[in-house]
Design a protein around this nucleic acid. Structure first.
Length: 517
RNA sequence: GGCCAGUUCGUCUAACGGUUAGGACUCAAGAUUUUCAUUCUUGCAAUAGGGGUUCGAUUCCCCUACUGGCUACCA
């Protein structure tokens, strides 16, 4: 049998910024497509005119772009309208708002076939029924029983229906859930799932207020037209899978029905519920790939702005709800493509762990060359008013690289390379400052002044030679010198620090310590 | 409430009927070191509970509990 070429889509709706769970869904789609030499399509599902947020689509494309997840087909970064089909975009357009005209005929076809019907309930009436049911501790279901009692095209003549539609815009098209059937579905991750149609309600396919299809209709029609072979989406869609199966049946598209894979949700780091947009600020970590300012002007930080490398971000979300079955944890995008399979996607939700996220970034930071990190650190130094020569900055980075997880953490740990100490650690002073200390510092100045090359190993040798010769204590001397040049009890080796500072600065700092300690 | 799905160390996860239940993050201890960090070594820590099936259950089945999702003219 000839296997169909794999075609997957990521189909977000532009109602706000994509959060990391959404990015992960996109990533899984992308990995699956690449792995099978297929096509990854980006489609924008903007049928909800009420929740549409300007800028959200641009955010989505930019976020994917930052992650290195490039769609081959569909809506591309930059947002240009691809309205006519081309070789690269054979099923254009890819925004549902640009495809409006197309859905109506499918809705009408279902009505004509008896799989759907016009309903005339008002929003208020339904709301009332729902709240009444809720008060009785029940749930209102728009099911076969209700269907019989209310005004709709099923219990009206064709003329009456036509009349009513003509007179008012207040009609919707609902799917007619068949009675007494069991829908047997298959999910690539969860296996077989069965559900009785009696528990399903007649979902709206066509909305009255904006004259657009709902997600369910548009999604199925587009997946069919765009020849999608695999639908990889979040677990929150599992409950509508039976509807979607029934829709494929009603259209007679069983053969073209894609395979479904519902990926587990990302959960809050602690407490209840799925990861939501608000968690980030509360817990002190980003939930968005990129910074986002909502229309009300409220800002939420992003992984990019928090100093994460895109590779680290992609790596960490890939391992939430999926694992390769080996002990490898660090993966490039290419390696992920090779290793990925839907079979190894977990069924249960994954709690996001900010500490592990930090660890991932640390791993990627260490892989970077000092010169690369320097590029990122120099702007931070500039902000602090430091104009150091690149050779020195690169040396600092090399020395401090394995002490930080983020580039922005360099400053707090290495400012003393650029600014001489203005205060000295009290604890250290107590421990190492004695009556002989000034004398010791003067000697050190003399010894170091004679040090020819002033390179770390030479400084180290010179100092140890002097310490041994004078029968001084290594810890005592080194810590005293550290106190003088750094002012605090942390950092790389004293000789290394002196190397970076250079002879002049080192001696200056020692001299200054003589009067300031 | 109803429907669906899930449940292995605190967290992410491995083990697809037979393991001293493995790894990673975090934490703790030790070694190295002039300090701090790195590095290395070691340690703490889990199969939700109860029934079956089986010579043998983390693994298969059932019940309970808990968790998550859905229950819109939102996606």
């Amino acid at each position: 049998m000839q296997e169909k070429k794999v075609r997957v889509r990521f189909a977000p709706s532009p109602t706000g910024p994509l959060h990391m769970g959404g990015v992960r869904t996109a990533l899984f789609n992308y990995l699956f497509a690449k792995k099978h030499n297929g096509t990854f399509v980006l489609r924008i599902e903007d049928t909800d005119t009420r929740r549409f947020v300007p800028g959200a689509e641009a955010y989505i494309t930019e976020a994917l772009d930052w992650c290195g997840i490039f769609p081959q087909e569909g809506v591309l970064p930059g947002g240009q309208v691809v309205s006519t089909p081309s070789e690269q975009h054979p099923f254009a357009p890819y925004r549902q708002s640009e495809r409006k005209e197309l859905y109506k005929e499918y809705a009408l076809r279902l009505v004509a076939q008896g799989n759907a019907y016009y309903a005339f309930d008002t929003q208020e009436a339904l709301d009332r029924l729902r709240s009444e049911a809720e008060q009785r501790g029940e749930a209102f279901v728009y099911d076969s029983q209700f269907r019989e009692k209310t005004a709709n095209s099923l219990n009206m003549t064709a003329e009456e229906t036509a009349e009513k539609i003509k007179k008012s815009d207040n009609w919707v098209i609902r799917f007619h859930i068949p009675e007494g059937k069991t829908v047997v579905m298959n999910d690539l991750i969860r296996g077989e799932i069965q559900i009785k149609t009696a528990t399903l309600d007649d979902k709206v396919l066509w909305k009255a207020h904006d004259g657009l299809p709902t997600y369910h209709l548009a999604n199925i029609v587009d997946d069919y037209l765009m020849q999608i072979t695999h639908v990889i989406r979040g677990e929150e869609w599992l409950p509508s899978l039976p509807l979607h199966y029934l829709l494929y049946d009603a259209f007679g598209w069983q053969e073209q029905r894609p395979q479904f894979a519902h990926v587990p949700l990302l959960l809050k780091p602690s407490g209840k519920g799925k990861l939501s947009k608000r968690d980030g600020d509360k817990m002190g970590f980003p939930v968005f790939p990129l910074e986002w300012t909502d229309p009300q002007g409220e800002k939420a930080t992003g992984y990019r702005e928090s100093g994460y490398f895109p590779e680290a971000f992609v790596n960490l979300i890939a391992l939430l709800g999926w694992n390769p079955g080996t002990e490898q944890e660090i993966f490039s995008l290419e390696e992920l493509v090779q290793a990925f399979s839907l079979e190894r996607v977990l069924k249960s939700g994954a709690r996001f762990n900010p500490e592990k996220a930090r660890w991932f970034n640390e791993q990627y930071l260490r892989k970077r060359f000092p010169a690369q990190l320097m590029e990122l650190f120099i702007p931070i130094l500039k902000e602090k008013g430091i104009e150091a020569d690149t050779e020195k900055v690169e040396k600092v980075i090399s020395l401090m690289k394995n002490r930080v997880a983020f580039v922005h953490e360099f400053w707090d740990l290495s400012y003393y390379f650029f600014i001489p100490p203005s205060e000295y650690d009290e604890g250290m002073k107590k421990k190492f400052y004695t009556a002989e200390t000034p004398q010791l510092i003067r000697q050190a100045i003399d010894v170091l002044a004679l040090c020819a090359s002033f390179e770390a190993t030479d400084i180290g040798n010179t100092l140890t030679h002097w310490i041994k010769e004078k029968q001084l204590k290594m810890g005592q001397v080194m810590n005293t010198l550290r106190l003088c040049i750094v002012g605090k009890p942390t950092g790389p080796g004293v000789a290394e620090i002196m190397d970076v500072l250079g002879k002049k600065d080192t001696l200056d700092r020692l001299t200054r310590a003589l009067t300031q300690l």
